[in-house]
């Protein structure tokens, strides 16, 4: 059985989907990811779908599911690199995937995760030391 590898990078998990997903593979990915988030206490998940040619309602649902599940486990999911044709098709299909964060590419997705991480830790500290650096 093929498996989609999940890489761990610090606090984040990185998944690159290289082939067109069929159902079993997608469901396995969902389960694997949730387990990995829990095991490593990951704070962010980055899913690169730039090589995926088709996302139908089933796969769209899996992506939303992963986003929601990881949110419950306190991790942010970012889907990156969606192809224009796939985006247009998803909209036409009626699946705007609200609730799933997106970014143009892996680099921008990573930035988003890191920024989110910084915001998180700032909240935890609750000591607002240098907030107004823009005011002059």
């Amino acid at each position: 059985m093929e498996k989609i590898p999940i890489l761990k990078m610090g606090d984040f998990l990185l998944v690159t989907v290289q082939i067109d997903l069929y159902d079993r593979l997608a469901l396995n990915l969902e389960a694997d990811l949730v387990n990995m988030i829990n095991k490593h206490q990951a704070k962010g998940v980055l899913i690169d779908i730039s090589a995926v040619n088709i996302v139908d309602s089933f796969m769209g649902r899996i992506l939303s599911n992963i986003a929601q599940m990881s949110k419950i486990l306190d991790a942010l999911t970012v889907v990156v690199g969606m192809q224009p044709a796939v985006a247009i098709t998803l909209i036409e299909l009626g699946l705007p995937m609200t609730g799933v964060r997106t970014a143009l590419n892996v680099e921008k997705g990573m930035e988003l995760l890191k920024r989110n991480r910084i915001l998180d830790s700032e909240e935890e500290e609750t000591t607002s030391t240098d907030e107004d650096d823009s005011a002059e």
Partner: peptide, 10 residues
């Protein structure tokens, strides 16, 4: 639709 598709792209 156009706005939603743009958002999907990130």
């Amino acid at each position: 639709k156009t706005v939603s598709a743009t958002r999907l792209m990130g």
